[in-house]
């Protein structure tokens, strides 16, 4: 097997193993209901993690996405409360804003040669502050269209519900896989992650690609914000604090190299589902503190970083020999 597939294989193996352990203890976890809920509950995280994967593949980081999700929720809620616009129009407007916001950060990163960490950190505060500007309260969304979205699902055999937002997440992952692995833009992203100077020598338009990468991440954060607002039927400026870090964790557990240049969008989906599975297990158990989720995620992260370091060393040793 190609060594670049090892981290992905490890992710899938860990996920399956975790599931087998869960099912042995709680056979009901094999049901489609649990599967359906897993997809629904983690839809917003899965979507934003796709954007994060592309950013991390390019060697960057986007800390603003959690705030952008919160801003999106508040923006939608306030717009629906105060104007008569149809939700679809509000969604379109929001996606333009979120994409533009990401593009602006990408442009700053390139034009000023600033580290993405700093620029997106500023973006994080900016988006969170903008959400507070709109409202400081939780604003409920009460719209017939939202009821429609909420009730849209496909009943799987076994009465599990594949909800619309779960489906949107799966579609987003598929689109992300094509963008990252099957387009010239995706090739440029990997090239940037492999080394900017070399990428430039090979003819990558560095500026344009950087802007597109962060615009894509912004778009994903906006979409995730829409999904989150459907999921919670409200907008709250204090929502999704720290989601950017959860997304980064999912990307790394999914086998993407944090330094960029290697990884898989599909692995990110598995990373998100692994984290969701641990959460589900704790809910099933009932007696465990939910903090165990964090501890296990921490351990998994550590394990993957060690795996990646080990792989790097193996590859180096073989080339050197």
């Amino acid at each position: 097997m190609n060594p670049r597939l090892y981290p992905l294989a490890a992710t899938i193996a860990i996920f399956l193993l975790a599931w087998v352990i869960c099912v042995m203890q709680f056979p009901y976890m094999l049901s489609t209901r649990v599967v359906g809920n897993l997809l629904t509950d983690n839809a917003y995280l899965g979507i934003v993690a796709v954007g994060m994967t592309v950013v991390i593949l390019s060697g960057g980081i986007d800390l603003s996405v959690g705030s952008v999700i919160a801003f999106s929720g508040v923006f939608i809620a306030v717009m629906l409360r105060d104007t008569g616009l149809h939700p679809i129009l509000v969604f379109a407007l929001l996606l333009v804003i979120a994409t533009g916001f990401g593009a602006a950060m990408g442009w700053l990163i390139h034009a000023l040669a600033m580290p993405p960490f700093i620029v997106t950190l500023a973006g994080m505060f900016l988006a969170r502050g903008a959400a507070y500007m709109l409202t400081i309260d939780s604003v409920p969304i009460d719209h017939a269209f939202y009821d429609l979205l909420d009730d849209a699902y496909y009943l799987m055999p076994g009465k599990g519900r594949l909800t619309l937002i779960g489906l949107v997440m799966l579609l987003t992952v598929s689109v992300g896989m094509i963008v990252a692995h099957r387009t010239r833009f995706g090739a440029s992203v990997f090239a940037l992650g492999g080394g900017e100077a070399t990428a430039r020598l090979m003819g990558v338009k560095v500026g344009r690609t950087t802007v597109m990468i962060y615009a894509f991440s912004g778009l994903m954060a906006g979409l995730s914000g829409i999904v989150f607002s459907v999921y919670t039927s409200s907008g709250y400026p204090l929502a999704t604090v720290g989601t950017e870090l959860t997304a980064i964790a999912a990307v790394v557990i999914g086998g993407t190299l944090l330094t960029g240049g290697a990884g898989f969008v599909f692995g990110t989906l598995i990373g998100v589902l692994t984290m969701g599975l641990i959460q589900t297990y704790i809910v099933f158990d009932g007696s465990l503190s939910s903090w165990w989720t964090k501890i296990i995620i921490g351990l998994l992260l550590l394990a993957f970083i060690l795996l990646q370091k080990g792989l790097l060393r193996v590859t180096m040793a073989r080339v050197g020999a």
Binding site: T183, R184, F190, A191, G193, T198, M202, V204
Partner: peptide, 23 residues
């Protein structure tokens, strides 16, 4: 060249054959 890409990706970089907009 970029060690994290395949030999084929390195060789065809920038001139990838496309089908329906995909590589």
């Amino acid at each position: 060249l970029l060690p994290n890409l395949t030999v084929a990706q390195n060789l065809t970089f920038g001139n990838e054959p496309l089908r329906f907009g995909m590589v």
